[in-house]
Amino acid sequence: MIRLLVALMLLLALLVAASLAFGDVSLTWRDLYHATTGTGDPDPQTTMIVFDLRLPRVLLALFVGVALATAGTITLAIMRNPLAEPGVLGINSGAAAAAMAVIVLVQEPPIALLQAAGFFGAAAMALAVYTLAWRGGTSSLRIILIGIGLSSLATAGTTFLSAFGDIGDVQRAMVWLAGSVYDANMDKVRLLAFWLIIPVTLAFLSAGELDLIRFGDHSAKSLGQPVDLVRGVMIVLVTVLSGAAVAVSGLIGFIGLVAPHIARRLVGASHARIFPVAALVGACLVVAADLIGRIILPPTQLPAGIVTGLVGAPFFAYLLWGRRHGDG
C-alpha cells in the first residue's frame, strides 16, 4: 500500500511538472527548475508563465480530480452499483444548471457566486432526489431512477438557458459545460481547497460505515447501522464535493466512475485503502486530461472534459459488458 501511494504521488508529481513545462510556449526542464526555485536569475516571462498561468491551472485540476474521485467512491458504495457516479444521481446536472444560470444571467459573476450557485444547485437536486425517493426508507434503486429523471429535467433547463441567453454568454457557458480549467486562478484554487477540507476529511473518516453499507441495507441494519441516516449524510458529502468541483471546472465526466474502480482493483474492497488511492488516481487523470488537451492539437485547447469522455466512455462500456457477461 505504501509503495503504491508513493508511486502514484511520483506519477502525479511528474504530470504536474510536465503541465508546467509544456504548452503553447514549451519550457526546458532547466528553465522550469530555475523558475520554480528562484535560482539562476530566471527569465521574468518564464516565471510569469509558470506561476501566473500554468500553476493555478494544474492545482485546480488536481483538486477537481480529488473531489470527483472521492464523490464517486462514496456514490459507488451507497448505491451498490458499479455503474453509479454522482452524475447518475443528477447532482452534477443540478450544479451545472445553476452555474449556467449565473453565467448567462449575471454579467461577469464573481468566483464565490459561481461556486455558491454550483453548490446550491447540487444541494437542491440532492434534496429533491432524496425526498422523492423516500418511501418508508431509502432505496438505492429508487434514488438512481429518480436521479436520472431529474437529471434530464435539469439538462432541459440548461438547454433552455442556452437558447435564450446572450450569444457571448452562451458560448462562454458552453465551453465551461464541456469541462475545463483553462480560466484557473489562485483565488479559485484557494476557494476550492478550503471548500474541500472538511468533506474530504469526513469522507475518509466514514470508510468503516461505507464498508458496512455496501453489504446491503438488511445486513447493515442487522449490525446496528442507521442506514437511511448514513446514506443521507453521504449524499450530502457527495453534493458538497461534486457541487464545488462542477462550479469551478464544469462537467468533467467519468472521473467519479473510473478512479474508484481503478483503486478497488489495486487495493481491494476496504474503503480506508480505496479513498487515498482513488483521490490520487483522480488527480492524475484530470491533470493528465488537461495536459493532453493543451498539447495534442496546438494551438487549439481541448477541454479536459472531452478528453476524459474519450477515456471514460469505453471504460463505461467495459463495465456494462462485464455486468452482462457476469449476469449471463
Rank of each mutant, 00 (worst) to 15 (best):
M1G: 08
A7R: 11
L8S: 07
L10H: 07
A13W: 02
L14V: 15
L15W: 00
L15P: 08
S19E: 05
A21V: 12
D31Q: 15
Y33R: 07
Y33K: 03
H34K: 14
A35Q: 07
T36W: 10
T36M: 15
T37D: 14
T37V: 15
G38L: 08
T39S: 15
T39R: 11
T47A: 15
M48T: 12
V50Y: 04
V50P: 03
R54M: 05
P56T: 02
L59A: 10
V64Y: 00
A69M: 00
L76E: 11
L76Y: 14
I78R: 06
M79D: 11
M79L: 15
R80E: 01
L83E: 03
P86T: 03
L89Q: 03
A98P: 05
A98W: 01
A98G: 03
A99L: 02
M100W: 10
A101G: 09
A101E: 02
V102R: 08
I103S: 04
E108Q: 13
P109Q: 04
L113C: 06
L114D: 10
L114P: 08
A116Q: 02
F119K: 06
F120T: 01
A123E: 01
A124Y: 01
M125Y: 01
L127Y: 04
V129S: 09
Y130E: 08
T131G: 11
T131E: 11
T131L: 13
A133M: 04
A133N: 00
R135N: 13
L141W: 07
R142I: 12
L145P: 01
I146P: 01
G147Y: 00
I148K: 08
G157W: 05
G157K: 06
T158S: 10
T158R: 04
T158V: 08
T159Q: 13
T159I: 10
F160E: 03
L161P: 00
S162H: 06
D166K: 13
I167F: 02
I167A: 14
G168K: 13
Q171F: 04
A173S: 13
V175K: 12
A178V: 00
G179N: 07
G179W: 02
A184K: 09
A184Q: 08
M186S: 09
L191K: 05
L191G: 07
V200I: 15
T201D: 02
A203N: 03
F204A: 07
L205M: 13
E209W: 13
L212V: 15
G216V: 01
D217Q: 10
A220T: 07
K221S: 06
K221D: 04
S222Q: 12
S222N: 09
G224R: 12
G224H: 04
G224L: 10
P226W: 07
L229I: 06
V230E: 01
I235V: 14
L237D: 12
S242A: 14
L251Q: 14
L251F: 05
L251K: 10
G253H: 07
F254P: 09
I255H: 10
I255P: 03
A259R: 00
L266K: 04
H271A: 05
A279V: 02
A279L: 01
V287F: 09
A288W: 12
I292F: 14
I295W: 02
P298L: 09
Q301C: 05
G305D: 06
T308H: 11
A313V: 13
P314G: 09
Y318A: 14
W321V: 04
R323F: 00
R323Y: 00
H325N: 06
H325P: 00
G326M: 11
G328A: 13
